[in-house]
Design a protein around this nucleic acid. Structure first.
Lengths: 141, 141
DNA sequence: CTAAATGTAACTAATTTTGTTACAAATTTA
DNA sequence: TAAATTTGTAACAAAATTAGTTACATTTAG
């Protein structure tokens, strides 16, 4: 199902709401109804991408590394999925044993998929975490 | 890994090469190095979407239902993935038990993901099976 | 020093995807 | 009409992926 991107986005929006006070993985996990280790795993990816800062030890936890207006969904997507998500791949076995024609078709297909994914990422790139919060809190109760 | 889209695309290009003579699931499966039932399952989806025609019985098999110039990768994508692939969903449990703020963020996120997917599909919509074959066969040997 | 927290490895469980077996129904062809 | 071939689909098995859990070393605040 691949819920990582959605969960990671919720982590970041949670931190945006937290506004500077460090949130623990326990807190966040409770909020997202998941496990603290799941949160810490995703948090590590977000940290490696420079989106959050984490603090070890008592009263530790995570903070946004920069303003929510400067964090896009694309930043989160790339932090989680890596640079080439290969959304629509073939199995390794199929790639190996195939004939010349099929290999060409596959190469073409991968090209097109890469450009489709890039287009999708551009959509994500246009949306900041701040905008998500804005859009969300202006919903009618 | 979700190889269905890629496999389905190879099925369709195979049929395009076959040019009017019915191909059996056995033939195609051998070509794609997979199982005939896997091919038949995807074929059923392609048939339901009106992209191919299938013939029961001896000397049966599958044919393209229309010219390769009139079949786009978007047609194949939608045949296989359905109209809403929910590429980046949350688990049902998480969706249910979450508070108002998180629910709003989730709704916003789903919106954005839907539009990202639509953008991706538009890229697929611009490429026909005929073009894939053209691009592929013009590769250097 | 103690308590609280991250970071990560290792494992288990759940889910999803792929492959397989089996067989009824349809169709061609001899 | 009988035999052979092929789809369509259900039911099951195996493999792969994803999510959740346990455990614990390390770090830091107080």
């Amino acid at each position: 199902m691949n819920t990582s991107f959605a969960v990671a986005t919720h982590i970041v929006t949670y931190l945006a709401f937290a506004r500077g006070s460090a949130a623990s993985s326990e807190q966040i996990a409770e909020h997202l109804q998941t496990n603290p280790v799941v949160v810490r795993r995703l948090m590590s990816l977000l940290r490696d991408a420079g989106l959050v800062k984490t603090k070890l030890g008592a009263r530790g936890g995570a903070l946004l590394a920069r303003c929510p207006t400067k964090i896009s969904l694309r930043d989160i997507y790339e932090a989680i999925e890596g640079d080439d998500a290969d959304l629509f791949a073939l199995s390794a076995a199929q790639k190996e044993g195939c004939n010349r024609i099929m290999a060409s078709v596959q190469a073409t297909l991968e090209d097109i998929c890469a450009s489709a994914e890039e287009t999708m990422k551009r959509v994500f790139g246009k949306v900041s975490v701040a905008q998500i919060i804005e859009r969300s809190s202006s919903f009618p109760k």
